[in-house]
């Protein structure tokens, strides 16, 4: 339980490639589906890589596009052009 970070995204077409990328890039991540949304928990650290999402959607994905589908989060966030990282102790 200690040190779990999480991100909740809408469960819609726009968020799906982001969800898939997160699950691929964070092998310890666990997705909990609820009506309309998905809460992804991960121990210690979770990364959303722009490159992974871009590959899936066939265009350049800006990490700031996360603002269109994010619902909630737990952890400290750090964002730059390439990735968005949630962790504790940052």
């Amino acid at each position: 339980m200690a040190g779990i970070v999480s991100i909740t995204l809408q469960n819609n077409d726009e968020a799906r490639p982001v969800i898939e990328s997160i699950l691929q890039d964070n092998p310890s991540a666990n997705a909990n589906y609820m009506p309309g949304a998905v809460k992804i928990d991960c121990p210690e650290r979770l990364v959303v890589k722009a490159e992974s999402v871009s590959e899936r959607i066939g265009r350049d994905w800006d990490p700031q596009e996360i603002h269109l589908t994010i619902v909630s989060m737990g952890g400290s966030l750090d964002e730059d052009d390439d990735e968005l990282v949630l962790s504790w102790g940052a």
Binding site: T8, Q10, M34, P35, G36, A37, H67, L68, V71, S72
Partner: peptide, 26 residues
Amino acid sequence: LFVPFMSGAAYNGDLATVTFGFSAQS
């Protein structure tokens, strides 16, 4: 407030509330 409640709206067929809820939640 928002996550279970908006998810509840989704489950109860309230498309309008889900949409403003998740839009606000972003």
